[in-house]
């Protein structure tokens, strides 16, 4: 079955982000396909490359990045949610004259159309953290 995930909560604040990650890993282990993971609202913090976890805690953005690399999954952070929360890619940082950019590699910033498309293309959309 083809799934898309909608992640709304921030890593390190809400258990649902870890649940989403394990759900995604389990889907793939069971032979399902993930069309897209869409990060919205506080979920966009999972695409901040500067997230720095203590040594005895998981680096959640890197875990998503690894999952995306291993399985070639489309990871999209909502551009409006991300810019407001200080997660920018290189072109947005230039556009708004910001001193640096911090979107983790493997993610892209895009609009809600990507979520609408994910909903249209997937058999199931499962949301985490509302």
């Amino acid at each position: 079955m083809k799934f898309s995930l909608l992640v709304l909560a921030a890593p390190y604040s809400d258990q649902s982000v870890g649940t989403a990650l394990r759900f995604a890993q389990t889907l793939l282990q069971q032979g399902h396909e993930i069309f897209r993971v869409f990060f919205y609202h506080n979920g966009v913090y999972a695409s901040n490359a500067l997230s720095t976890a203590p040594q005895d805690e998981a680096n959640i953005p890197r875990q998503w990045q690894q999952l995306a690399q291993d399985h070639n999954i489309d990871m999209v952070s909502c551009i409006a949610s991300a810019l407001k929360r200080g997660v920018l890619d290189e072109s947005e940082a230039q556009r708004y004259d910001q001193p640096c950019h911090n979107l983790i590699a493997g993610f892209e910033l895009s609009g809600l159309g990507q979520l609408v498309e994910a909903s249209a293309q997937s058999d199931r959309v499962v949301s985490f953290g509302a």
């Binding site: 609009g111 809600l112 159309g113 979520l115 609408v116 498309e117 909903s119 249209a120």
Partner: peptide, 10 residues
């Protein structure tokens, strides 16, 4: 989300 989906004629 509703407005975006409406714009895409969902």
């Amino acid at each position: 989300i509703a407005l975006a989906a409406g714009a895409f004629e969902q």
